[in-house]
Amino acid sequence: MQILIIILQIAVLLAVVLLHVAYTTYFERKIIGHMQVRMGPMRVGWHGLLQPIADGIKSFFKEDIIPEQADKPLFLAAPVICLVAMLASLAVLPFAEGWALADINIGLLFIFAMSSLASYGIILAGWASNSKYTFLGGLRSMAQVISYEIPMGLSLVGVMMLSGSLNLTEIVTAQGTSIFSIYLFPQIIGFFVFFIAMLAETNRVPFDLPEAETELVSGYITEYSGMRYAMFFMAEYIGMMVMASIGTVCFLGGWNGPFAIPFFPPFWFILKVYGFLFLFIWIRATLPRYRYDQLMALGWKLLIPLALLNIFLTGLFKILVH
């Protein structure tokens, strides 16, 4: 019985998240459209509201092309690895008090572990397609993810030190309910590093070198089509949501808001996550792409020292206060 309930919860979570993913693409196209003084999708449904569903149906029924020279098992497995890793990290996110599927002690580390697993999907996709563009895209993504996982992990160490826990629910409760006690203020350096590393981890503009259209066609997903392409797409958007949720949980006080919303406790959480997503999209519409050596220099020479400084300052602060 217990297992049935858990399975039901997982199914509901997946359905809700995938629906959100579908409409995040709509959200993105609409916002970028308006920022570029266009309308965005308008044809399918009222103001293009049914566009994501039409896109989903289209990619579902499209032919799944496998290149002849590809490494078939890995080519087929890569998008699944990517998507599964991203979906797994949803399990530990606390959407509201007690609204986490698995409230484990190492929630934050679990998410890091899963995001490093997702990078395998990208690397393998690049290699297994047996094409120069995908291979270069895969290599770039590999180097990028390794480089930016370090500042990302280090930037959250300050949060771990202040809250004294790796459990996401405890991190939220440690921040209290007031808007002035959220970790954004004491951890402003950490947040800065986290935000940049978050953009790089999710391969978003200005760090979308793994799929730079001008040089690499479409990067590691060049050879994919139909549903497998859509799986990479979904994984990318779920990755964005997971990273936005981590930002919300660790720096913006999670589900706590100015006042409690009856019947729907995750309201503030979702609002904050969408705030992050809007920032992602806004940046995409605004900034040009980084050059590769600039990307590496930024990660290793600026973000890592800054994150270490943040840890040092947080430690000093803790010693002085106690």
């Binding site: 580390l109 890091f112 572990a113 790796l166």
Partner: peptide
């Protein structure tokens, strides 16, 4: 559990890559 997470982050996420 800490070792388990570190095992995946360090070995699977960094060294094997």
């Amino acid at each position: 559990e800490f070792l388990a997470a570190i095992q995946i982050i360090v070995y699977a996420g960094a060294i094997l890559v």
